[in-house]
Amino acid sequence: MNYLSSNPILVEKHVILSDSEADVLLKKFKITPDKLPKIYDNDPQILKIKGKPGQIVAIERDDDGKKYTYYRLIIKKGSI
């Protein structure tokens, strides 16, 4: 069974940030990418959107009506 082809309604939307968007984000929080929360490159959602290590994903969360965006840095599995 290929779980990537299914459409899980419970998983938040993951979007890869463009380089310029990433710059804005890092400037806003005054940090370097390694200070962001991490996500493995073999995470099902990252495989689905074809994320590469070093890119930043925006995760659109909806916590009981409270909408906010979470950010994670894609890293290679095993590099930590």
């Binding site: 940090i31 969360r61 906010y68 965006t69 979470y70 950010y71």
Partner: peptide, 20 residues
Amino acid sequence: DDKSVRGSGMELIQPIYGGD
């Protein structure tokens, strides 16, 4: 002070505390 949650080394834990 920007309402984000940080660790001891400034690392980002939550972009905004509690999501709101």
